[in-house]
């Protein structure tokens, strides 16, 4: 494959990954999936960088991608802590719940009607109970699963 062609192909794939990640980031409402999408955009950029680096015979692209990896790791650590924090506040991962920074005269974000869950109730395998079932305090159990 010609070098120019290789570069071109990689740039297109990079753009595609960036675009797909963008769709995910913009439209998905689950914070974790948004994070995945953002990481995917980074992957697209990394691909372009590496391709350029190879094309120009330069280490810069590779170096930059290594740094991107580092930053992505930091990002993941912070983000996951934040997601945990937010999840404990509301009990779900919906990003649309958090719009407190809107302008004072803006209305609250109201969802369109929530469609019913079309997935069939999963059938979990059951195991034969072994030993005595532990005592479960009803209140405690309620509190434990209250959010989900």
């Amino acid at each position: 494959m010609l070098e120019v062609q290789l570069l071109y192909n990689y740039l297109v794939i990079g753009a595609l990954l960036f675009g797909i990640g963008l769709v995910g980031l913009l439209s998905r409402r689950n914070m974790l999936i948004m994070f995945l999408a953002a990481e995917m955009m980074l992957q697209g950029v990394s691909l372009s960088l590496v391709a350029f680096g190879r094309f120009h015979n330069d280490w810069g692209g590779t170096t930059l991608v290594i740094l991107i990896l580092t930053v992505a790791a930091c990002e993941a650590a912070i983000l996951l802590a934040l997601v945990q924090c937010l999840f404990h506040r509301t009990g779900n991962l919906d990003i649309a719940v958090w719009h407190d920074l809107r302008d004072a005269n803006q209305p609250k974000f109201i969802d369109q009607e929530v469609p019913g869950d079309d997935a069939a109730k999963p059938e979990w395998p059951t195991l034969t109970p072994a030993g005595i079932e532990p005592e479960v305090d009803a209140d405690e159990a309620l509190e434990h699963r209250i959010h989900v």
């Binding site: 913009l26 649309a96 958090w98 719009h99 407190d100 920074l101 809107r102 302008d103 803006q106």
Partner: peptide
């Protein structure tokens, strides 16, 4: 412009 400050991250 204030009217577009909906607070929705996306």
């Amino acid at each position: 412009l204030r009217n577009i400050q909906t607070g929705v991250v996306q």
